[in-house]
Design a protein around this nucleic acid. Sequence first.
DNA 1: CGGCGTTTTGAGAGAGCTCAACATCGGTGG
DNA 2: CCACCGATGTTGAGCTCTCTCAAAACGCCG
Lengths: 189, 189
Amino acid sequence: MLPKLFHDLPANALKNINFQKSETIFRQYDETCGLYFVISGKVSLKRHSPNGDEIIIHNAGKNETFAEAALFSKEYHCDATAIETTQLVLINKAAVLAQMASNPIFAMNLSAQFARQIQIYRRRLEIQAIQSADERVYAAIGDGMLQGNIIKELAAHIGLSHEATYRSLANLVKRNKLTKFARGKYIIK
Amino acid sequence: MLPKLFHDLPANALKNINFQKSETIFRQYDETCGLYFVISGKVSLKRHSPNGDEIIIHNAGKNETFAEAALFSKEYHCDATAIETTQLVLINKAAVLAQMASNPIFAMNLSAQFARQIQIYRRRLEIQAIQSADERVYAAIGDGMLQGNIIKELAAHIGLSHEATYRSLANLVKRNKLTKFARGKYIIK
DNA sequence: CGGCGTTTTGAGAGAGCTCAACATCGGTGG
DNA sequence: CCACCGATGTTGAGCTCTCTCAAAACGCCG
């Protein structure tokens, strides 16, 4: 779902674009045209180090925005490619900036959206910092990371193999911290 | 260094406050008065789960802001306590919102600041996702995480024991990806 | 010189990864 | 309707890598 705040933008500021697997969305040093929202599919953001190796900056999935910093920068600072068939919304940079200038409510909503993102990422980092697989899985579930998500994806999100994740889930059920109510469905307490 | 953009605020919007170790900065459900910037020391942000356990949301260190979301919320959503002697700047919420409403440049600068944060956190998450200690350390150094920082801090940032970090540094030197030019000083290539 | 903290290296134990096998579910086609 | 297939879920066993505990070298500062 595209965040509501973007509906304050004129209709022509939003453009749906589809990409096939491996297609390029933008390249480093391309002039920025806006930020993106992922309707479906997956996008990989990479940068090339001076040494030539590729550095993964981020993988953006369904319902995420990416390239927010493009709003305030002349050029993209990384490459973006679709790693599967992907539907995106391109949110026009000039329209966003104009709206921010003329509509303080919009500016606040955008900042609030960013602030929320920051919160979420900080929390994720804290979760990653948890050593024990069991506690990490527990924290992630407490954070609502298993909503409609499949467990393999949860595992990837929290940096565990899916096997380790399954084992932790089983442990947590044994330890009476989780309840299993269906194949692959768990709930806290 | 307090980010420059905040100097657009009236002088009375910034208040220096000092806390002793273990002192409370704010509590969950307290009415928000603003966001904070850490001049020195360390702050721990925690929430209490319905089950009673404490959940660490984030640990904010020197030169970080925290509680940005307070700008857009009536109440704080977690507890903040100083975990060492700490100097903070309290950035008044009403002043920030007023400035955003009347000064689009300020609003954009604030959003840009948030967007930068988001970029940084995403990158950190990608680094944490790297399995191999060697590659993780290499990525972190490539990201400039070893600027004046001591290695133990780097280790904590990237979720490795300091011993493992030292060993990876040694490996990377052997593999000719890093150069050691002094005790605890490394540079890429 | 003598502490104190960081850096470095060693050895053992434990946790999670990998490889592998199997179960279960939903969908697809005969 | 049933057999098959692919993807997810689940569990087992061995191996590898990192953590932990320990100790020593080094550098800084009083």
